[in-house]
């Protein structure tokens, strides 16, 4: 086995109703320092984590959604969103925050981190992982 493992964080819970989404993101941020091959999957209610326009002012709790935009700076730029989960919730990619990263292999061109994939493609991506952390 090589030194670098493929780590997949599977996010299946909506934000704010429970803390799982936010604490999962904290793991991703810490994990980024370990220089593993990191991917994120958003499935089921997890897709709601990426919806744009989140505003928690009236709740008085922390709005952690801007943190997703910083993932690109942590070299976390493989963010897979399952199309079936979006469809089931009446969402499209236009409802999601635009997440980008700068590609160092392509003259730091700004690229999209989010890839909407079908269930079959997501199954194939999961297949390739070494470690799956579920939230």
């Amino acid at each position: 086995m090589s030194d670098v493992k493929k780590f997949m964080y599977v996010n299946r819970k909506a934000p704010y109703g429970t803390i799982y989404a936010w604490e999962a993101l904290e793991v991703v941020l810490i994990g980024a320092a370990f220089e593993q091959d990191v991917s994120l999957a958003f499935v089921d209610d997890g897709v709601f984590q990426l919806v744009k326009g989140q505003d928690t002012t009236e709740l008085g709790i922390k709005n952690f959604s801007p943190t997703y935009s910083a993932l690109g700076d942590y070299d976390v730029n493989k963010i897979y969103v399952e199309k079936e989960s979006l469809d089931a919730r009446g969402l499209t990619i236009d409802d999601l925050m635009p997440l980008t990263y700068e590609d160092e292999d392509d003259d730091w061109a700004e690229k999209d981190s989010i890839r909407v994939v079908t269930a079959a493609e997501m199954a194939e991506i999961l297949e390739q992982q070494d470690v799956v952390l579920s939230f």
Partner: peptide, 13 residues
Amino acid sequence: DRPSLQTCLRLAG
């Protein structure tokens, strides 16, 4: 209660 099983079966190889 929630679709964990259904999603698992959709995404299992």
